[in-house]
């Protein structure tokens, strides 16, 4: 069978499907000062599955932590139109479970184009393999 670390190089999705892969990728992102990208990506996935009674509070928590401060790594990678869409959704009593989907896609693209290829070339990954 293919060892997990070779699967991680197939796609970002394969990497994020493996607990050890996530951990190593997160260590790499911490070194680069951008672990929030990964945390936000998982927060968006978790948000979709969150029960309705917690969704409104959680939407505000995600918004405050990653989006409202425009200097953060996540906020800087999300398009202004997407941010204003989220801002409108957050104030609703029953936020849409898909309200962070566009932002998640934008952050995923950032990781696929930048941090993921860098990770595969990093000493951290090479030493692991």
């Amino acid at each position: 069978p293919t060892p997990p670390y070779l699967k991680w190089a197939e796609s970002l999705h394969s990497l994020l499907d493996d607990q050890e892969g996530i951990q190593l990728f997160r260590n790499f992102l911490c070194q680069e000062g951008c672990a929030d990208l990964l945390d936000f990506w998982f927060a968006c996935s978790g948000f979709r599955k969150t029960s309705q009674d917690k969704r409104s509070k959680l939407a505000k928590a995600i918004y405050r932590k990653y989006i409202v401060d425009g200097t953060g790594i996540v906020s800087r990678q999300i398009k202004p139109a997407t941010k204003s869409f989220i801002r409108d959704c957050v104030v609703r009593p029953h936020p849409d479970p898909a309200m962070f989907e566009q932002a998640q896609t934008e952050i995923q693209t950032t990781m696929e184009e930048n941090t993921y290829p860098l990770f595969l070339k990093s000493d951290l990954y090479l030493e692991y393999t």
Binding site: I22, F42, A43, G46, K49, K57, A61, R64, K65
Partner: peptide
């Protein structure tokens, strides 16, 4: 704010794959 952080952590870990 603490409980907001807890909620966020719970949300993030709920989205992660479980150990195989």
């Amino acid at each position: 704010i603490d409980s907001e952080d807890d909620l966020l952590l719970e949300c993030i870990s709920s989205a992660m794959p479980k150990r195989k």
